[in-house]
């Protein structure tokens, strides 16, 4: 491989990591709100959260990418008469964040609901408000339970970023395909597989470790 090719694969890998990292962090924060919205006593807030999850889990990720990349500029043009160019990178950040938020919200909601009701009652009996009880008592107890399913989602997300090649982003997979096509060598696909595996292995080891550390209070 030439220096140039290695550089190209490296750049592609960075794009893959960037999209994954940004959308996981933003998605987790948003998902916390959507999950609390799903558990809200207010019917409208509950409805909005339900609708959000329903839409983003119920439509293909690729379709969502196209909607942000192609449909949004057209809608913008129709309403304002001005052109809008969506940057592929920004498109990816937005789409992957919105998409993963829906999945993570359901994970977080389920984790919150798995905490025994007595915990909220004890907190209230001590005079805590709902918000204090959630922040200090309920949500901290979900962390360990969140690690495995969120890790799962993180690995799926990392691999799903390969769809950005369809909006002309040179991520790891697209770079690999270009190199393979131009050289006629299948070896590039093996390199790509190895890099994906390397990243997912790190994630898996990391989440295993984190789960152990967060579960320290559950060991007798």
């Amino acid at each position: 491989m030439t220096q140039q090719q290695i550089q190209a694969i490296f750049d592609g890998t960075v794009i893959t990591i960037e999209i994954t990292a940004v959308s996981v962090v933003l998605g987790f924060i948003l998902a916390m709100f959507v999950a609390l919205g799903r558990l809200s006593k207010n019917r409208i807030i509950r409805g909005i959260s339900w609708f959000y999850i329903w839409f983003f889990r119920g439509t293909p990720l690729l379709l969502q990418l196209f909607m942000v990349f192609y449909a949004v500029p057209i809608i913008y043009l129709d309403y304002t008469g001005q052109t809008l160019n969506m940057d592929p990178m920004v498109t990816s950040y937005i789409t992957y964040t919105l998409n993963t938020t829906a999945y993570m919200a359901e994970i977080i909601r389920a984790a919150i609901e798995s905490i025994p009701e007595g915990q909220m009652e004890a907190a209230k009996a001590l005079g805590m408000t709902y918000g204090q009880a959630m922040r200090r008592i309920i949500i901290p107890q979900t962390y360990r339970r969140l690690v495995a399913p969120i890790g799962n989602e993180l690995i799926i997300l990392l691999k799903d970023t390969s769809l950005v090649s369809s909006i002309a982003l040179s991520d790891l997979l697209r770079t690999t395909r270009t190199l393979a096509n131009s050289s006629g060598s299948w070896l590039y696909y093996v390199y790509a597989a190895a890099i994906y595996l390397f990243m997912t292995t790190l994630l898996q080891l990391g989440t295993d470790q984190l789960e152990k550390r967060l579960g320290v209070y559950e060991r007798r």
Binding site: P116, G118, Q119, E121, A122, A125, G127, Q141, Y217, E218
Partner: peptide, 16 residues
Amino acid sequence: NLDIGMVFQNFNLFPH
């Protein structure tokens, strides 16, 4: 309400 404390059947200590 702060003048009323409560002890539960299942203790409900905060495990974390």
